[in-house]
């Protein structure tokens, strides 16, 4: 009878603990294998955010395109300095990404976004075929670029004073050229918003910032790829009308 009592306690206890241990092990195992995809996905998603946000500065755009178009497109060949890639800035060629199989369209403003998009595609493709290591490496770099882009965006947003004539839906696209120290060497209005005040305010915002020390943390090749020349979009989204 005492053995019977013990049975009635020991067996349920054993089964109860067993159920939980098995469940934990199963979850843990599944979680790990699932992890690769779970991690990869957020990264890709982030990347797409980057391509939308970071390269383009957010917010408003004034009408009138005039204002300074300092350096038309061709940048003054910013000092290619140590850049391994000769990448003359002139043609905006962010130079075809060496990595990428297909050369990038030359469209200058879209080049950055395009690159990111391409990179993203590449990443996704890589995830399917390649061992994990590769994507995570690539995405680390991505993270960094994204962070820098976010900081730059914050800096510009802070310095941007929109004219009263700014309206939702206006959009000015600037092309900014940087040197590796982060100094702005070129501001080019590539697409006007249609309001000169707005365009001026956008250009003034970049001028006011003057230098983006953040890019100094990037490797030179990342800098060349993403920030030597990049499009910056000003679009007010928070206005009421």
């Amino acid at each position: 009878m005492s053995s019977d009592r013990a049975l009635i306690i020991a067996v349920p206890l054993f089964v109860a603990v067993l159920v939980h241990v098995v469940f934990l092990v199963a979850i843990e195992g599944e979680w790990r294998t699932g992890e690769a995809t779970v991690v990869a996905k957020p990264k890709v998603v982030q990347a797409s955010l980057v391509s939308l946000n970071s390269p383009k500065k957010p917010t408003p755009k004034p009408e009138r395109k005039p204002k300074k178009k300092p350096k038309p497109k061709p940048k003054p060949k910013p000092q290619p300095t140590t850049t391994p890639l000769p990448k003359p800035v002139a043609v905006e060629p962010k130079s075809p990404e060496p990595k990428r199989a297909h050369p990038e369209p030359v469209a200058e403003e879209s080049s950055q976004a395009q690159k990111l998009a391409d990179l993203q595609k590449e990443l996704m493709a890589g995830l399917e075929e390649l061992p994990q290591a590769e994507p995570s490496e690539a995405s680390d770099e991505f993270d960094e670029v994204q962070q820098v882009a976010a900081l730059m965006q914050a800096r510009i947003t802070q310095n941007w004073r929109r004219p009263p004539s700014a309206r939702n839906g206006m959009e000015a696209l600037l092309t900014i050229s940087l040197v590796p120290t982060g100094e702005v060497v070129g501001i080019n209005l590539s697409t006007s918003s249609g309001s000169s005040a707005f365009d001026r305010s956008a250009i003034a915002a970049v001028e006011r910032v003057g230098q983006f020390p953040e890019v100094a943390v990037l490797s030179i090749s990342d800098f060349e790829r993403y920030f030597r020349r990049f499009p910056l979009r000003f679009r007010p989204e928070d206005l009421r009308y």
Partner: peptide, 18 residues
């Protein structure tokens, strides 16, 4: 929750036996 879960499984198995 873990304690509740373990206890309730204990009771479930015990009930099944009884």
């Amino acid at each position: 929750l873990v304690a509740a879960s373990v206890t309730s499984w204990f009771m479930i198995v015990q009930r099944v036996i009884i």
